[in-house]
């Protein structure tokens, strides 16, 4: 049985949406899916090395006043941080993380080493479109 493929356009750089992306990614990993993540706009900011897992530098997409409650609940429920979710998924299945070249530049990231070590390359939008056209599952988060 050939593994299914998933392409994710990760536009969002907010704590809640990144966590949701991490949970979905875990499900894909448990299913041995081949995953390509294209990190766009706000997502690329979150992937900057100096931001990543630091909740002080990330906001919530919804209910921003409940950020601390959200973080406390995640800790109590032993839920991983979004970076840990992504890292674990990469260990379990074939996940490639591509940073959009334009988005990287917007946030001052020109080179791969400007981003958390999960990123595999910096790419152009054509690659994303091709990947989305061919994927079994396509998500925009």
């Amino acid at each position: 049985m050939e593994n299914k493929t998933m392409t994710m356009a990760l536009f969002s750089g907010s704590l809640d949406k990144l966590t949701a992306a991490g949970v979905i990614l875990s499900g894909a990993a448990a299913d041995d899916m081949e995953v390509d993540i294209y990190v766009l706009m706000q997502g690329a900011r979150a992937f900057k090395k100096e931001i990543g897992d630091n909740p002080d530098k990330l906001s919530m997409a919804e209910n921003p006043d409940l950020k601390q409650e959200f973080l406390n609940s995640l800790e109590q429920l032993k839920v991983k941080t979004w970076v840990e979710f992504f890292r674990e998924a990469k260990e379990l299945t074939n996940v490639k993380i591509h940073i959009c070249g334009l988005a990287g530049k917007i946030w001052g990231g020109e080179k791969l080493e400007d981003f958390v070590d999960l990123a595999d390359d910096i790419c152009g939008i054509g690659e994303y479109i091709t990947s989305a056209q061919e994927a079994d599952v396509h998500l925009f988060i």
């Binding site: 875990s26 448990a30 032993k78 839920v79 379990l92």
Partner: peptide
Amino acid sequence: RGTACPGPLLEAKK
């Protein structure tokens, strides 16, 4: 035990 979804699924997978 004590982990929320997707914890148990990932533990099973591993």
